[in-house]
Design a protein around this nucleic acid. Structure first.
Lengths: 148, 148
DNA sequence: TTACGTGCAAACGTTTTGCACAAAC
DNA sequence: GTTTGTGCAAAACGTTTGCACGTAA
């Protein structure tokens, strides 16, 4: 817990913004999770540990962290913003039933082929393609069992 | 216009829901567009042609069409629902600057390799992977010129 | 002391729901 | 006459903004 606390603190200092309590707790929570919490889930998670964080502050801090590229933001299939402290390139596998999102590594070869394809498709259409994301949809182990 | 009108009407009848005016106009508009309009954009587009459609009705009808798989719904990068009458499998290329979304075909070979990768990754994690979507991000021709 | 961060409250934009009325089977 | 669809108004939801108050450099 303390290790994570200082990891979060260090990350904040490294990018030149004040490691306030609200920010350290937020980043610490995000670093310690493997799922992709929404703003509301983050508020809940932080609330239970201590007191209550302000909604506005949390959103402001999330926005700042995204802007500084300390975390990533994406939109889930119901239109909710979700956040992710993992900066390595990875793709998402989402459960059609429960909405769970897990990270999935894709083979380097597949990625290479895809990126080539992206460049070709983009250039043909006059686009400047900068990144590529894969999204798999299916059933997670739990929901798969329920369906059968 | 009349051809599209009857195409929309036929599509509605074929799936067993009443081809009311609101629905025909909605589907007709969607069939005639190559972009991926949001609900608000659809309302605007239909409003100018004739009178004003009800917000609730439009959303209800969009939801029904999605449920019946007559159209597709997805979420854009700012969290807005966007709709698409094209049912062929295709991927999306989105502009980081203006948010435009265009369809992009991906070579069959690339897709095949990717799908294999998805199955392997999914099975390894105990998932039942059912589909795969690619999302390219970059700058569309117009925004690209502005940046330079 | 000056810039930055917090958090309440209120505003915002999109989507959803309750309901009475109208139209189609 | 019963089911189905419409559309107004109001609610719900997540997010953003205005602002007064703290807190840290």
């Amino acid at each position: 817990m303390n290790a994570m606390n200082s990891a979060a603190r260090a990350r904040l200092e490294r990018m030149g913004i004040r490691p306030t309590d609200a920010r350290v707790r937020l980043l610490q929570e995000l670093l310690g999770r493997k799922d992709h919490p929404s703003a509301a889930e983050l508020i809940d998670a932080i609330r239970t540990q201590d007191e209550a964080p302000g909604v506005a502050t949390l959103h402001q801090n999330l926005a700042k962290l995204v802007e500084l590229q300390a975390i990533r933001r994406f939109v889930d299939s119901v239109g909710l913003f979700r956040f992710d402290a993992c900066l390595d390139q990875h793709h998402h596998m989402v459960c059609a039933a429960c909405g769970a999102v897990v990270d999935v590594p894709v083979s380097a070869k597949a990625r290479e082929i895809l990126e080539q394809g992206a460049m070709i498709a983009g250039e043909r259409a006059g686009w400047d393609v900068r990144s590529m994301t894969l999204r798999f949809e299916g059933l997670c182990p739990a929901c798969r069992d329920l369906e059968v």
